[in-house]
Nucleic acid binder design. Structure first.
Lengths: 325, 325
DNA sequence: CTGAAAGCGCTTACAG
DNA sequence: CTGAAAGCGCTTACAG
């Protein structure tokens, strides 16, 4: 391994000078810089991030914690974050968890490596995990989730507004008997989508039934099959995310229930598969790019200077009309 | 930040003793251990991985490089790796790339952080990237890919054997006019699947046409549409991966071509969606768990002691018969 | 088994 | 602008 000392000797300068060439903001003469870079290139030198981080006490690593990686929405999110952070010189430490509520041990590894910041895309936080973020002053963004305490910055789609607009849209289409299929009941997204939707329909005195599910394809498929067995087919479904909506569509089609004639289906997310011809699902497009940008801007400013500022940011998104309505 | 020195003072022992409690393999008396652990707990101490790694010159981080994260096969692989490595005390640094051939700058970040090992799931390597792995003696596994030089350990499905078995299966089903839809032409997987398949059909004098595509849903959909337009429908398709096969199925169904009566379709991977009712795709199941295990075992032994040993490991998998054949 | 000390590869005041 | 030196939080010979 080539160190700054090796380069220094080879270039005939001090080790500090080598360090200054690679440290943004430090001042070095053009001549020194040149000598150092030439020597570094010849020797194949690269600064050791670990040593660097030991001093600055922070790495250029962002931790991303995901649960629902089976849902195509999240790989897309991961890709977007990885690309954006790479351009800013940050690397991604990926954590997968099975827990709805992030536990201390899920994120221990992130703290051990002194990550610069953390993004949790689709899970809530246990109390002791919350404590740790506060205590170690690690910037955190809840992506696509909120927590009740409002202790942390969150970036979500405007679920309330979106679900209201969806309700109005279905009313305009003439629906009078509607079913909402919820995702995991304890998630903020599912609750908010339910709330906005319910509010509008109530005002218009339109019948609404609500069934719980779990944000998976199988969950959507199962609940729809059950409804079909009970011949309880409404004239429209609002399903809390796309992957469940695809399950609903498949169950309906298997029973040859004509869409959108007999019943309509609307999802949420606008995952890639929603646009596939056999589905062609009407859905609410979450503006991933905008959500990612908001997250990154906040994280970068908190990394620059930690304030612990918390806010629930919401971005709008848009209804994408396809063939299921 | 609480350091080993703080704990040492609080516990009335030396800093070395604190270190020994947290360093596997070091010897400490039960009494000292107890005192240290008590003090550590009280103060909320956790060893700084960065300082640790600076000395041992290796982190407990595994780099995973992915390209085709849109293909549901890979998120599943990522999940499996993350879970397995976590249980071994290793963290995952995730790198997304757009390049078919990994470039030096794609993996710079991994070298800067002195990762213990690297997995590349679905891409090839540029020459200078190869050099770096050799030079810095970083263990590397090519997962689901081989490179021509055979310089590195690779773990793949037995593509040759699998495609031969698929060919025999289709022959047994009475197919006499078959089309193979290839993935990215320069990938080892697509080439091998083509080779095994071709070999068997040739021996049996069965007509085979080959069309190139790109391992995406859209690619499969497009090529099938084109064939439909040319009324060039064979009695069976072998499609180089599942996600393309779903595109083929959708195009066929849109034109009301009955499956498996008029034509049969077989994919490769056994992604989750292959089992969804509207697809119910016959496919070759890649044994992800076994492939991951082989990868991990190799990586761990190379991390223990670097040998640079290279081999192309192949695991078998199995044909999963569903409704498209 | 334990402590004092050197050192991993850097950054960063401090002089000059 | 540059160099010598201290120090980040650990591991690891070396004595005892």
């Amino acid at each position: 391994m080539i160190t700054a000392m090796d380069v220094a000797k080879h270039a005939g300068v001090s080790q500090s000078s080598v360090s200054r060439v690679y440290f943004e903001g430090a001042t070095v003469s053009a001549k020194t810089r040149e000598k150092v870079l030439a020597a570094a290139k010849e020797l194949g030198y690269r600064p050791n991030e670990l040593a660097r981080s030991l001093i600055t006490n922070r790495t250029k690593i962002i931790g991303i914690v995901m649960k629902g990686i089976q849902n195509p929405f999240y790989p897309q999110v991961l890709k977007q974050f990885t690309t954006t952070f790479k351009s800013l010189g940050y690397s991604i430490m990926f954590v997968y968890t099975n827990n709805d509520e992030i536990q201390k041990e899920d994120i221990d590894t992130l703290f051990n490596y002194n990550v610069a910041g953390v993004i949790i895309t689709d899970a809530s936080l246990s109390l002791n995990a919350i404590e740790d973020f506060k205590k170690y002053k690690i910037p955190l963004v809840l992506f696509n989730r909120k927590i009740a305490s409002n202790d942390f910055y969150s970036v979500c789609c405007n679920n309330l507004g979106a679900s209201k607009e969806i309700a109005h849209y279905l009313i305009d289409k003439g629906s009078t008997d509607i079913i909402y299929i919820a995702g995991n009941q304890n998630t903020s997204t599912s609750k908010e989508r339910e709330q906005g939707f319910t509010e509008v329909l109530k005002k218009s005195n339109i019948s609404l039934d609500i069934f719980g599910s779990d944000y998976t394809y199988e969950g959507g498929y199962r609940i729809a099959q059950q409804l079909i067995n009970e011949t309880r087919i409404p004239d429209a479904f609002f399903v809390a995310n796309d992957i469940m909506a695809l399950g609903v569509l498949d169950a309906l089609r298997e029973s040859s229930i004509s869409i959108p004639k007999v019943t309509k289906v609307i999802g949420f997310d606008n995952i890639e598969m929603a646009s596939w011809p056999p589905y062609s699902l009407t859905t609410w497009a979450q503006p991933i790019n905008e959500m990612v940008d908001q997250t990154v801007v906040y994280l970068m400013s908190e990394i620059e200077e930690y304030t612990g500022f918390a806010e629930n940011v919401e971005v709008n998104g848009v209804l994408v009309e396809r063939k299921t309505t």
